[in-house]
């Protein structure tokens, strides 16, 4: 009968708990940045000798010389995993950043440019959301001629709608807020209000939106390359590595899939956590723990 989250009994606690949301966010942010730095720097420093075919070192299980083992062509799986992750993260970053930008423009346009624009954009958002992400992604990647470019464009064009909807709702609410109306009556221009009143409220939303989109984009990049629609087999994208290793799994070469898969999982999870923490911190509706 009364909203459930308000019903949680506060309990009788005294003293200020030391562990709090801001500390947790700081830890998750530094952890994810360290991971990102290791992957990016690692792929730079490693050079490409690990990717070279060396037939005498084929199918080796993990060992001190090859920590993640080698594949059926003798390529070092550690180098391939790191390079593959770096590539996926780059595509993911690009895709998520452009998606966020599109979402910001679309959301703000819908909220500020009048009813016709709002209807158009809302319709576009609804249509995009009603088609499964992956199907759209594959279609767009195909039309753009596949490859890294196709995948990146596909991700950009498919991930913005949900965030655009959030931005639109937030902006609409702000536009009718009393303090914005008062600002108009005090003679402030629309541009002034947009930059001083709207931007500071929507900026944090966009940052959180970007951080939540990013792991999505990486996963979708991996998925589409796994399906063989993305890049050429020579590029060590994580999806390609995983799909190739499928064939060898039955022969007991578990390391071909486990390490790259775990790496992907770790990267995605780390960024998802930052997004979640930041969202809780910036959301005025949630309690500041």
């Amino acid at each position: 009968m009364i909203r459930r989250h308000m019903l949680q009994a506060a309990g009788m606690n005294t003293g200020i708990p030391r562990w709090n949301g801001r500390i947790r966010t700081a830890i998750s942010v530094s952890g994810a940045i360290a991971l990102l730095a290791v992957i990016m720097l690692g792929s730079r420093l490693m050079g490409s000798e690990g990717l070279a075919v060396s037939l005498e070192e084929r199918n080796m299980a993990p060992s001190p010389a090859h920590l993640f083992g080698t594949d059926w062509l003798g390529r070092d799986m550690l180098s391939r995993t790191v390079k593959g992750l770096a590539l996926s993260i780059q595509v993911g970053l690009l895709g998520a950043a452009c998606s966020t930008l599109i979402a910001a423009v679309m959301g703000l346009a819908a909220a500020t440019l009048g009813r016709a624009a709002d209807r158009c954009i809302s319709w576009l958002i609804d249509v995009s959301l009603s088609v499964p992400h992956l199907v759209m992604l594959i279609l767009i990647a195909f039309v753009c001629g596949g490859g890294m470019k196709g995948v990146a464009i596909g991700i950009m064009l498919t991930h913005w709608p949900s965030l655009a909807r959030v931005v639109r709702a937030e902006a609409l609410q702000l536009m009718s807020a009393d303090f914005v109306l008062v600002s108009r009556k005090l003679g402030r221009s629309r541009m002034w209000i947009a930059s001083r009143h709207l931007a500071p409220h929507i900026g944090p939303q966009l940052l959180v939106g970007f951080l939540m989109l990013f792991p999505h984009a990486v996963l979708h990049e991996a998925a589409i390359t796994f399906l063989g629609l993305g890049m050429s087999p020579h590029q060590p994208a994580i999806g390609i590595i995983l799909s190739e290793s499928m064939r060898y799994l039955s022969t007991g070469m578990w390391w071909l899939a486990v390490f790259p898969g775990a790496g992907l999982l770790l990267a995605v999870w780390a960024f998802d956590r930052i997004g979640g923490h930041l969202r809780r911190l910036t959301d005025p509706g949630s309690v500041r723990l």
């Binding site: 308000m6 506060a10 606690n13 005294t14 003293g15």
Partner: peptide, 22 residues
């Protein structure tokens, strides 16, 4: 018992002579 979670409470609330716990 519906205070938000970022709140510290001390003291006693009782109902019909019994302490009103969770």
């Amino acid at each position: 018992g519906i205070l938000p979670k970022n709140v510290l409470v001390s003291g006693d609330v009782s109902y019909k002579g019994e302490r009103l716990d969770a």
